[in-house]
């Protein structure tokens, strides 16, 4: 039935908000963020020359920190190189917010 397949508009909103707030907290423009992803992509690709275009760098907001995740598909093993930036450096004073929550 159509209404079962309809994506809740609030879920769309929630995802958009998460992205926007990730940029806000990192005090980075989306342009800077794209540049960071491109640079990281280059570095990771240097260590995995065979995977080249298949490497995928993503920015995620998780609770109190921002995560920069590079996914490297590998023919033998599936490797996952996670650069979990400490919240202190990525989101400044905001980092401790979660821990302050009672």
């Amino acid at each position: 039935m159509w209404f079962l397949n309809r994506k809740k508009t609030k879920d769309v909103l929630k995802e958009r908000l998460k992205v926007v707030i990730t940029y806000d907290r990192a005090k980075m423009s989306p342009g800077d963020m794209e540049e960071l992803k491109a640079e990281l992509h280059k570095v990771v690709a240097r260590f995995f020359p065979d995977e080249g275009q298949k490497i995928n760098v993503e920015i995620e907001q998780s609770d109190n920190s921002m995560r920069v995740v590079a996914n490297v598909p590998n023919s033998r093993v599936q490797q996952n190189v996670g650069v979990n930036q400490s919240a202190k450096t990525s989101t400044g004073k905001r980092s401790s917010r979660k821990s302050r929550k009672k």
Partner: peptide, 20 residues
Amino acid sequence: MVKRGDMLEVNDVLEILGIQ
């Protein structure tokens, strides 16, 4: 609207903002 899924619910907002 919350019931229809067209408005953020309380826990969505709390999850995003992370304050009490």
